[in-house]
Design a protein around this nucleic acid. Structure first.
Lengths: 243, 243
DNA sequence: TAGTGGTCTAGACCACACG
DNA sequence: GTGTGGTCTAGACCACTAC
């Protein structure tokens, strides 16, 4: 081990290499924090620091009272060539069983940034605000926060609360013509970690989007927070068109 | 929301709200860990845990011996409509002063995954391997790891080590016709954190790309690790170019 | 020299899982 | 009840920065 690296770094790198090498396989339980402390001859605090790093990187998952287990997660790949309201279509394309849990659907006075993004006028500044958790199989993948123009929410409220956004909109003639997307990164705060069932501090992709109809009018916008340990984004550039 | 949030969460959320509210402005120094411990009536360990969360989220930066300061970060926005070897062009478009520091340039036997991505044949499996740090102004933005086909490295070695990839390639007739891109997320390990001068565990975008010439032959691939606290990615979908 | 953050220890109490 | 991870404390030593 390097002379000047902190112990917790040496330890997390060592554990990572052992996981990579297959000494611990996906699903395996790691030794307890106490035992690891004995093995590396350090305090439990130092072991916990090392394991926290691995947890944030999605390599291991800890369960209180049970132990620390090696995670295995193939990442779900989302194409950036279509707005993320096609989430369901993307999941299906990868043979994953997508489902949603709607946790909020209400008509509110739009916040300022939403007024701007949806190009609302002062006298029509109410929107429907939906929040839902998206699952692939049993596991949560994302938290989606969507703002619909009021007319859409009035019309499609029931359907939007029970099904995926894209199918509902498309079935009713709302097909996006274009979309603007911006991808950032954030860390799960306490609220998000509880909502998604992920560790505090897990990195999340923040996928911001505004979808526009054929007349250039934005009709839906929002952001989707996806677990970075379970998702990635891809795009093909050039060839005359974005694919 | 939850009845019993950990103290370190309460504290980091409180500090975050004070930063958001402008009580601490960008560049301001936070009270010392000792003083914060007195204010919140907790141990220094708990304060450090709270500050570590803020650090990873890019809200504050700590300097040993000096203190903890509120960071200011406007994010650099990269378009996903062009391969990231256009990094320099993107920086210029945003009036940023881009520069590079080449830290490795050598001809090596290509690793297996590079053989595959560049579609190399068994008897022409050597590539040039370049690593460089990219700066916007004084601040490091990204670590770029690029693999060139041997013929390109032989021809353009000197230029590639001193300038940005895109201009060098374009000036010599190597214009990418298409590119495949995949964006993931990783956390800075010890080596990366030292190389980029960022805190251990800072989230990074991992931008993987393969660029192909007009004959469909890949000629350069690699990955760019960009600081997620300083960069984001955007793309415009549709407007006729996509189904 | 004094103050700051970086690391680490030893030990405590709690909540949860399992037999 | 025993073992596990989750949280927190009090204190130590070090390296770096400023004066």
């Amino acid at each position: 081990m390097s002379p000047n690296t902190p112990k917790h770094v040496d330890i997390s790198e060592k554990l990572r290499s052992e996981i990579d090498a297959g000494i611990y396989e996906p699903g395996d339980k790691l030794p307890s924090e106490f035992d690891l402390g004995q093995r590396f001859d350090v305090s439990r605090t130092t072991i916990r620091r090392a394991i926290a790093d691995l947890t944030r990187q999605g390599l291991v998952t800890t369960y209180q009272g049970k132990g620390c287990f090696v995670a295995q997660s193939e990442k779900v790949n989302f194409s950036l060539a279509s707005p993320l309201i096609y989430f369901d279509a993307e999941l299906k394309r990868q043979n994953l069983d997508g489902s949603i849990k709607s946790i909020r659907f209400e008509c509110i006075e739009a916040p300022k940034d939403i007024v701007r993004r949806l190009k609302l006028s002062a006298d029509h500044s109410r929107v429907y605000w939906q929040e839902k958790v998206i699952y692939a199989g049993e596991e949560s993948i994302a938290l989606d926060i969507t703002y619909y123009r009021q007319s859409i929410g009035d019309l499609l409220g029931d359907q939007l609360q029970s099904g995926f956004t894209y199918y509902t909109l498309a079935r009713n003639g709302f097909k996006p013509h274009s979309a603007e997307v911006r991808v950032e990164c954030a860390l799960a705060n306490f609220q998000l970690s509880e909502c998604l069932g992920v560790p505090l501090g897990l990195p999340l992709f923040v996928y911001n989007y505004v979808a526009t109809d054929q007349d250039g009018m934005p009709f839906v916008c929002g952001k989707t927070l996806t677990r970075s340990d379970r998702t990635c984004f891809s795009v093909k550039i050039g060839d005359g068109s974005v694919e």
